[in-house]
C-alpha cells in the first residue's frame, strides 16, 4: 500500500508500470557496492524511483578530488564518511525508503553477510578483485549482478543472471592491471544510469536485460556498441552451475 505522499511522488512513473510495478520496487532490496562515481548516480536514481531498501557500502571518506564525479557528496562533506553523507542525501531525496549505509571494506569474510537477503547487487566498485567477489556472492545467492566500470570517457556495463547468462568471470576471466584511472563525472553518470535502468527492468520483470551482452560506451565518439558474450562452460566462477529455475 502507498501513502498519499508516495502516490503523488511516484505518479508519473506509475503511469508506466502501475501500482503493481511500484509495489515491486517498494518490496525490493538492492545492494550497492560503493558510494563513489558509479554508486552516486545509481543510488540517487534508485532512491527516487522508490526502491524500498537500499544498502550502500563504502569504506572511504569524502575527498575534495572525489567531487568532480561523486555527486552524492558536497563540498561541506569533505572529511566525512561517504556512508554518512550518502545516508543523509538519500534520505533527504526520498524519506519514504529505507537506507542502510555501512562503513566497511567488502571482503571475502563479510561479503555474503553484507549482501544478506538483497534482491540484486550493483557493482559500483573500482577494482576487479572486489568485483569477482561480488560475482561469486551473486552466483552463490542466485541474485543478479549489475556490472558497470568506467575510465575517462569510456564505460562498460552488463547484467549477470547467475546460472543463466555469462557471469563477470566468463566475460573477464583475468583482471586488467590496477591503475589510477582518469575520469570525468559524465561517464559514471551514463554507465550508472544503464545499471539503474537494468535494476528497474529486472524488478519490474519487463524489457530485455543487458545479459550476454557487454555494452560499451565511448563518450568522445558519442558511440555505443554491444558485444555478444556467452557463458564459458569452464568458467571458474559459474562453470559448475547448471540451468536454474527462475526464482523470482
Amino acid at each position: 500500500m502507498f501513502s498519499e505522499r508516495e502516490r503523488e511522488r511516484y505518479k508519473r512513473q506509475m503511469m508506466l508500470f502501475g501500482d503493481e510495478g511500484q509495489e515491486r520496487l517498494k518490496k525490493a532490496h538492492i545492494f550497492i557496492a560503493g558510494a563513489g562515481g558509479l554508486g552516486s548516480p545509481v543510488s540517487l536514481y534508485l532512491a527516487v524511483a522508490g526502491i524500498g531498501t537500499l544498502t550502500i557500502v563504502d569504506r572511504d571518506v569524502v575527498d575534495q578530488s572525489n567531487l568532480n564525479r561523486q555527486i552524492l557528496h558536497n563540498d561541506r562533506d569533505i572529511g566525512r564518511k561517504k556512508t554518512e553523507s550518502a545516508e543523509e542525501k538519500l534520505h533527504a531525496i526520498n524519506p519514504d525508503i529505507q537506507i542502510r549505509a555501512i562503513d566497511t571494506t567488502i571482503e571475502e569474510k563479510n561479503a555474503s553477510g553484507l549482501v544478506g537477503k538483497a534482491d540484486g547487487i550493483v557493482d559500483a566498485m573500482d577494482n576487479y578483485p572486489t568485483r569477482y567477489l561480488l560475482n561469486d556472492i551473486a552466483i552463490k545467492k542466485k541474485i543478479p549482478l549489475f556490472h558497470g566500470a568506467i575510465s575517462g570517457f569510456y564505460g562498460q556495463a552488463t547484467t549477470v543472471i547467475p546460472g543463466k547468462t555469462a557471469c563477470l568471470a566468463c566475460i573477464f576471466p583475468k583482471a586488467p592491471p590496477k591503475e589510477v584511472f582518469p575520469v570525468v563525472g559524465v561517464t559514471p553518470g551514463i554507465i550508472g544510469m544503464v545499471q539503474a535502468t537494468e535494476v528497474l527492468k529486472y524488478l519490474l520483470k519487463s524489457g530485455e536485460l543487458l545479459t550476454n551482452r557487454l555494452f560499451i560506451w565511448d563518450g568522445m565518439q558519442a558511440h555505443a556498441e554491444e558485444i555478444c558474450m556467452e557463458r564459458n562452460p569452464r568458467c571458474t566462477a559459474c562453470g559448475s552451475m547448471s540451468e536454474i529455475p527462475e526464482n523470482k
Binding site: 562498460q156 586488467p176 584511472f181
Partner: peptide, 10 residues
C-alpha cells in the same frame, strides 16, 4: 576483429 581492454574504474 575487435580488440579491447576491460575498464576498471568506478
Amino acid at each position: 576483429i575487435a580488440v579491447f581492454p576491460p575498464v576498471a574504474g568506478g
